[in-house]
Structure formats: structure tokens, C-alpha cells
Design a binder for these strands. Sequence first.
DNA 1: ACAACTTATATGACGCGTCATTGAATGACA
DNA 2: TGTCATTCAATGACGCGTCATATAAGTTGT
Lengths: 127, 127
Amino acid sequence: MAKPQDRQLVEQWRSMQTTYFQTAGALERALESKFNIGLTEFEILDLVAESADAACRMKQLGERTPMTQSAMSKVVDRLDKAGLISRQSCEDDRRSLYLELTDAGRALHRQAAVEHRALLRENLGTD
Amino acid sequence: MAKPQDRQLVEQWRSMQTTYFQTAGALERALESKFNIGLTEFEILDLVAESADAACRMKQLGERTPMTQSAMSKVVDRLDKAGLISRQSCEDDRRSLYLELTDAGRALHRQAAVEHRALLRENLGTD
DNA sequence: ACAACTTATATGACGCGTCATTGAATGACA
DNA sequence: TGTCATTCAATGACGCGTCATATAAGTTGT
């Protein structure tokens, strides 16, 4: 009992939790105060911005994040209502949705990304 | 723009998010289904179990986890109601609280810890 | 001993994520 | 082509965490 390997695992886990929450918290606060969006919102913007190509994305996006389908749906809904993203139905499969940044969304993302990267560097940076 | 260093930071962050959520999810589900407690509950039990010594703990515990004071208070409340922990007022400072595992709490923690460590190994293990 | 401040925990309102379910569209196959 | 199963997205109920605040106890300075 109280195997040293276990202790080490637990330490590793806690340390991960700590950096995770610290970083997420910093990102959350900065994005919220400067751009009025939450971290999850930004993360979706970021994913959509990355895939400049087309595709019935809603689904594929889900594969690139640990978010639930349900969560995705709600975040996208918020982004839509905020006018940052637009959902367009897919013609070859009318269950799916295309996601696209609006101009406002693209602009906001460009600015927010700078802040985001800076904070990542600050929190995860190996410098 | 699109600096490769930035990309690398983002990758690092996403990968961390993924392992964090996967691991937390696995822990959550296992603890919930086998012991009827959430991950946070277990984590508090774990912390209390570790500090076998005395102290006005509620506060000090807060320093060992990224949880909010408010969150702590509520988790402890749940654990108390579940009969796993007991809150006793501190005599030298009646604002503070001693936390102590009940027998049930200690027993549950002993079993749950095995599961917990196993899942950590499975998810974070470098083997 | 009295104000004004600080510290330890609790609580209420609120937002977000999760689970389970629904609705709609598609696929598979006789 | 009609049925049954499957897949994509949306929704409502619910739980937990957060922020702002409340309450109570301790501290400090005069």
C-alpha cells in the first residue's frame, strides 16, 4: 500500500489539474473581459477558422475536441446568436450543418487568437 | 502570422485538454457507478485521508487544489450529508472547521483509491 | 472596549455541460 | 418501395462550479 509509483501518478495528475485550471481560468477571464466570449466559444471559432475548406463540419468538429455533441450544439448556438458564426444546411445530407465564420467572427477570432496564444505561452511555455 | 511556435503551443494545449477530459471522464464514471461519488468528492476524501494529522483543514485543503472556496464548501457539504466526512468546529478559531473521515468515508476511500490509481495508470501511465 | 478591517465558511442566483430523448434524414435490404 | 435501424443535430431536466454576497469570528488601533 501507498506504493511510491501511485504517489507519483497522483502527483502527476494533480499537477496536470493545476496547470489545466490555471490556464483555462486565465484564458476564460481574458477572453470574457476583452471579447465577451467564453473559452469554449473561442475554441470552436478557432477550429472553424482552421478548416478553411468545406465539409459538413458540425460533426467533424466534434471529432477534434473532447466536447460532447450536445455541448457543441449549444456553443454553436450561442455563437450563431452572437452573429459570429453561421449554420448552413448541407445539401448532400440535410441532417448535417456547414459552419462558417461571419466577418465579425473572423475579425474577432483574429484578435482573440493573439491573446490566446500569448496566454498559452505564458502558462505552458517552456521558456 | 501562423507562427509554427504558436501551432505547437496550441497542439500542446489541445492534447492536454484531451487527456485531461478523457481521464477525468473515466474517473468520474467509474467512481460514480461503483461508489456513488463524483470525482471531486473523491479528491477531497483523498486529500483529507492524506493529512492524517490535525489542523483547521477546510482552509488548508483549499491551498492544495485548484478548487474555489465555494466549490470546496459545497463538496464538503455533500460529503457530510453522505456521511463520509464530518465537520467539527475548531476550538481555537471558531470560524474554521476540522474535517475528518468517518469510518464509512475511510472505508469507501480505501476501495475507491484502488480504482482511482488504476485508472490514472491506465490513462497517464508511461508504460 | 469600540469601531473598522480582515479572515473562514456558507449560500443564492446563474451559466454551462451532461445525459437522455426527440425529430428529422438517410441507409440497408427484402 | 416499405420497414427498421442508424446517424446528425437540438432540446429539457438536472447537477455542479462560479461569482458576489452574507454571516460569523477574529484582529488591530485608539
